[in-house]
Simulated scan of single mutants.
Amino acid sequence: MKTKGRRNKRLRYIRLFAALIAVPLICYTIYYIADVFFNGAFVDWFTHRFVYEQTVYEGETAYVERQIAWNVLKPFLAKVFLLAAAFFALSLAFVSYFSQKRKAEKLLLDTSRKIHQYMHSELEAEEIFPSEYAQVSTQIVQIKADMQQKERRLKEEAQKKNDLITYLAHDLKTPLTSVLGYLNLLEEAPDMPAAQREKYVHTALGKAERLDSLIEEFFEITRYNLQNMVLEKENLDVSYMMIQMTEEFYPVLSSGHNTVRLELPQEFFVYADSQKLARVFNNLLKNAIAYSYPDTEIVVRGEQQGEQAVISFENHGKTIPKQKLDLIFEKFFRMDEARKSNTGGAGLGLAIAKEIVELHGGSISAESKQEKTVFRVTLPEKPSN
Results as ranks from 00 to 15, higher is better:
71 N>C: 04
259 T>K: 10
194 A>M: 06
382 K>Q: 11
215 I>H: 00
171 D>R: 15
218 F>D: 07
73 L>Q: 05
126 E>G: 03
35 D>M: 06
316 H>E: 12
161 K>S: 05
236 L>F: 08
295 D>P: 11
20 L>A: 07
150 K>A: 14
346 A>R: 08
62 A>N: 02
90 L>R: 01
240 Y>H: 06
303 E>W: 01
73 L>M: 07
83 L>A: 13
268 F>R: 00
172 L>W: 03
122 E>M: 01
160 K>Y: 11
351 A>M: 07
220 E>Q: 15
329 F>Y: 11
12 R>A: 12
41 A>D: 11
349 G>N: 10
148 Q>C: 02
187 E>S: 10
252 V>S: 09
334 R>M: 15
110 D>N: 07
225 N>W: 13
381 E>K: 04
206 G>R: 06
293 Y>E: 14
97 Y>N: 02
306 G>K: 03
293 Y>M: 14
185 L>N: 08
371 E>N: 15
338 A>M: 11
125 A>Y: 01
179 V>G: 00
195 A>G: 01
325 L>D: 07
90 L>C: 09
192 M>H: 01
352 I>L: 15
333 F>G: 04
81 F>A: 13
241 M>Q: 10
310 V>L: 07
141 V>F: 08
384 S>K: 08
24 P>R: 09
94 F>I: 09
215 I>S: 02
319 T>Y: 06
241 M>Y: 03
23 V>H: 05
109 L>G: 14
17 F>L: 15
40 G>R: 08
154 L>N: 08
337 E>M: 07
100 Q>C: 12
